Computed example of a mutant assay.
Amino acid sequence: MSGALDQVFTRCREQDRAALVAYLPAGYPDLETSVRAVRTLAGSGADIIEVGVPYTDPLMDGPVIQDAATRALASGFRLEHIFQVVSAAAEAGAVPVVMSYWNPVLRFGVDRFATELVRAGGAGLITPDLIPDEAHTWRDAAREHGLAPIFLVAPSSTDARLEMTVQACGGFVYVASTMGVTGARTSLGGEALALVGRTRSVTGLPLCVGLGVSTGDQAAEVAQFADGVIVGSALVRAVGQDPTLEQLAGLTRELAEGVRRR
């Protein structure tokens, strides 16, 4: 669905590596810093940047991302600011996608959101709380605007649900490797590998694994079987610990090196 995402995964396959997919919430800790942060991600090796929409009632976000969302909202974040951050990521050379719960998009206006996302250089939208069979409005808008509708699969997904979900996806499939909320983990377990195997049996789309990766070694581990390695909480924590963004740059470089180990 999105040519820019297709190009990323084609380039990564040619380089025999996985893509690094980096998540940061827009507006954290303020809008200016979040713009600098996505540029730092792009300049330090992130291929795809997930720009998160801070939300007042997150369903699957862990404490690090919840705290970041609260700070972003307190500092004045509004949904229209998301496009400024997306534009900065695109201008810095990464392919941006937005990650948002569905209600903010619905309230903003689905077609209006799609139009503004394309204008800013965005390639798609990840909707963690929206299932494909209830996403007809978004899927129609995405198709019309050339955006990738990206849905999640999880270890709890039945075979029927798994197949239906991947058929509705564009760009890539977001493989949630563990049950529960997001957050950096010391051990990834075997659920990710099993779920990737099940998902590969029903789709040829790239599979990006998220929920838990926080080090270069973990990124290298996941890169052995995934097309993309998603990192969120560890990067958000780095922004919070070091406003100069040097820590963010260093961690991103470590992760980018990790996804290149095959």
Score class of each variant (00 low, 15 high):
A168Q: 07
G189F: 10
T186G: 08
M164L: 14
A192F: 02
D159V: 13
V173K: 01
T165R: 01
L205S: 00
V166C: 04
V175C: 10
G210C: 08
A184T: 14
F172V: 06
L205K: 09
G170L: 04
V209M: 04
T203R: 10
V196W: 04
T182A: 07
L205T: 07
T178S: 12
T215V: 13
A192D: 01
L207M: 07
A176F: 11
A176P: 01
L188A: 03
L195Y: 05
G210F: 01
L195P: 06
R198Q: 08
V175H: 01
M164S: 15
R161S: 12
T203C: 12
M179T: 15
C208M: 04
V196L: 09
A160I: 12
E191S: 15
L188G: 00
A168W: 09
R198C: 06
T215D: 11
A176W: 12
S177P: 13
L188M: 12
S214L: 05
C169F: 10
T199G: 03
L195M: 06
T182P: 03
E163K: 15
A168K: 02
G171Y: 01
T158F: 07
L188N: 03
L211Q: 05
C208E: 02
S214V: 11
A192G: 14
L188Y: 09
G180Q: 09
L205R: 05
L162A: 12
V209R: 00
T165A: 05
L205C: 05
G183R: 01
S187Q: 15
V196C: 09
C208Q: 02
D159C: 10
V173Q: 03
V181P: 00
R200H: 13
P206I: 07
L162I: 10
G210P: 05
G171L: 05
T178G: 06
E191N: 15
G210A: 09
V166F: 11
C169A: 08
T178N: 11
L195S: 03
L162N: 09
G171F: 02
S177V: 09
S177H: 05
L193R: 15
R200C: 12
A176C: 13
T178K: 08
S214G: 12
V166N: 02
P206W: 01
R200V: 13
E191T: 15
D217T: 14
L193N: 06
G210D: 09
F172S: 08
G210Q: 02
T158P: 05
A160N: 09
T199N: 04
L205N: 03
S157V: 08
S187H: 15
S201K: 10
Q167A: 14
P206E: 01
L162T: 11
A176S: 13
M164H: 15
C169G: 02
G212H: 02
A184V: 11
A168L: 08
T203D: 04
T182K: 00
S187F: 13
D159H: 13
T186D: 15
T158M: 06
T186S: 14
V202E: 02
F172A: 08
Q167V: 01
V175F: 07
L205Y: 10
E163D: 13
G216E: 02
G189M: 12
M179W: 00
T199Q: 03
G216T: 09
V175R: 00
V175P: 05
M179Q: 12
V173T: 04
E191A: 15
D217F: 06
C208K: 01
Q167I: 01
L205G: 00
V166P: 07
S187C: 10
